[in-house]
Amino acid sequence: MLEIPCPFCGPRPEVEFRCGGEADIRRPADPDRCSDRAWTDYLWNRTNPKGVHRERWWHVHGCRRWFVVSRHTVSDTILAVSDSGQTAQPQETAADG
């Protein structure tokens, strides 16, 4: 079980949270005009990296707020946590391995 550092409440056991999947997925600005391929990519395709994953978590049995976690998907180590109110940063930093 993960120990997740909620930016608002501090470290709590995973059972208090719900994972909301990959972060930084943006809805195409004009769905009527975007290509089927771009819409498919938005709806269904996921990065699913073997490496650092930016993902959204919801502290459902706590403060009930959403935030973003960077976690390595091989070691499950949590590398960074940020308030999801901030604009998403392209992932460039944390070591991949």
Binding site: E14, V15, D76
Partner: peptide, 11 residues
Amino acid sequence: YVSYSQRGGIQ
């Protein structure tokens, strides 16, 4: 959550 860890949570 997405993982390649081949472990799985105890809960």
